[in-house]
């Protein structure tokens, strides 16, 4: 396959970026998208140019490191992660636009790499169950109905990739936050902190320069783990309940 790539190049956050054009020949349809970029980078290095920076690690769709805007769609044309996208999804002669995630909450580090630490801070704000090591009761002390456990699991599969933010016209991190609120809120162990968790997490999300959600649904449609819109409804429900219950944390 022959391809033309138009890639966002930006040496550092302070410098303005622009799209640069590259031509690649001999791309195999069995390559993953990132392997295709590897090939590009080796060529760039040998010709003395700076290789394209992009985040990646596991290359099997689970760590959430990778994430590119490919032809205007987060993670590209298949509903999966960028590392699990294969070149067989493209055709010979295609022009492919590659851009970083765009959000106020995700400042560009270099080229296609963005800083997603805002997600960590959202989790830090309340996305946990306080269970210090050694304090746990016997695991079978509290049965969890299978439906709840399964639904919690569905939400817990979020890999924190940020595609939801990238795709959302409002730049909202709602699906990410909602996935965590849903995961923990469905489990009996998550009940004691349920109210304060949702209030704090939403507050942190708003403070991180993410947009508010207006239920557009782009996020769920590109989410590689198929996190459902139901999680957002659940978050809203929990937040309103928490506000009614007066859970306004003091921090």
């Amino acid at each position: 396959m022959q391809l033309t790539l138009r890639v966002w190049r930006q040496p550092s956050p302070a410098v303005k970026g622009k799209m640069a054009n590259y031509h690649l020949t001999d791309v195999s349809p069995d390559m993953s998208f990132l392997e295709m970029l590897d090939v590009l980078n080796e060529q760039l290095i040998l010709s003395g140019e700076d290789p394209v920076a992009f985040d990646h690690d596991c290359r099997e769709g689970i760590c959430g490191s990778c994430g590119l805007m490919i032809n205007g769609i987060a993670h590209g044309p298949e509903q999966t992660t960028t590392c699990q996208l294969h070149m067989r999804s493209f055709s010979d002669g295609d022009t492919i636009d590659i851009e970083p995630w765009r959000s106020g909450g995700f400042p560009v580090v270099k080229d296609l790499v963005v800083d997603r630490s805002a997600f960590d801070r959202i989790i830090s704000a309340g996305g946990f169950i306080s269970a210090p090591t050694g304090t746990a009761p016997e695991a079978h002390a509290t049965p969890v109905p299978k439906v709840d456990a399964d639904a919690a699991f569905d939400a817990a599969t979020c890999i924190g990739c940020g595609a939801c933010v990238a795709a959302c016209p409002n730049g909202s991190a709602m699906l990410f936050t909602a996935a965590k609120v849903t995961h923990l809120g469905l489990l009996p162990q998550g009940q004691p902190e349920r109210d304060s968790r949702v209030v704090r997490m939403v507050a942190q999300q708003d403070a991180e320069d993410f947009g508010g959600c207006t239920n557009i649904g782009e996020c769920s449609a590109v989410c590689p783990k198929g996190i459902s819109m139901e999680t957002i409804s659940r978050l809203n429900h929990d937040l309103l309940g928490a506000l009614r219950a007066g859970a306004v944390p003091t921090s």
């Binding site: 799209m19 032809n71 205007g72 636009d97 851009e99 782009e218 769920s220």
Partner: peptide, 9 residues
């Protein structure tokens, strides 16, 4: 974005 497509909205 330079290119942005709608998936479902």
């Amino acid at each position: 974005y330079v290119t942005k497509k709608r998936v479902q909205q």
